[in-house]
């Protein structure tokens, strides 16, 4: 016969063993690490492949961020991020605001925001649609609204594309 103390010790050991085993089985990396997870196998802004391989992507999305300045250009052009210049955070926030507003308004995702002096020029390639009155309204609205909100002249320079549908670069 075992004593009560022995039984208690056995129970504790078995529980501990079970917890340890479960941890080892479920944990992707065995052992304990105190350093931050490196995530070497994951990269940002790489589109995920679809199961059927029929998901079309455009050039902007197909080219990864580390190819910026090599295979594709920047969507934002300003001097804020140069050495010794101020208001880089404000510029980034304004850009995000402009993109958000215009993508909701126009249904187009990629906008090129160029800043020169105090003028912000927003350009985009807009598909040719039937409602040109609507397009003119959208341009006027965007210019007036952004100029009022950002307190500086904003020029909206939309160029109508040659084709209705944007050609897809590749299907993934």
């Amino acid at each position: 016969m075992r004593t009560a103390a022995e039984r208690r010790a056995m129970l504790t050991n078995s529980v501990l063993l079970a917890v340890l085993q479960r941890t080892c089985n479920t944990c992707p990396v065995r052992g304990i690490k105190t350093s931050a997870v490196y995530l070497k196998n994951r990269r940002a802004a790489i589109p995920k492949r679809s199961a059927a391989g029929n998901h079309g992507i455009l050039y902007e999305k197909a080219t990864a961020p580390h190819h910026l300045g090599v295979r594709k250009g920047w969507l934002t052009w300003n001097t804020s991020n140069l050495y010794g210049e101020s208001r880089s955070s404000e510029t980034a926030l304004e850009d995000a605001y402009i993109r958000k507003l215009l993508s909701e308004l126009m249904g187009v995702n990629d906008y090129i925001i160029k800043r020169k002096y105090n003028v912000i020029t927003v350009s985009a390639a807009i598909p040719p649609r039937k409602g040109y009155n609507l397009l003119f309204f959208q341009i006027g609205f965007a210019e007036e609204f952004l100029t009022t909100v950002l307190q500086c002249p904003v020029k909206v320079d939309f160029i109508v594309r040659g084709t209705e549908d944007l050609p897809v670069l590749r299907y993934i």
Binding site: L58, Y59, E60, K72, G73, W74, L75, W77, D110, I112, S123, A125, I159, R161, G162, T163, L166, P167, V168, L169, R170
Partner: peptide, 15 residues
């Protein structure tokens, strides 16, 4: 698709 790079649809030329 090489059509993607042509001038009337390419965003790169505008950038």
């Amino acid at each position: 698709n090489p059509r993607m790079f042509e001038k009337d649809v390419s965003l790169e030329l505008m950038k």
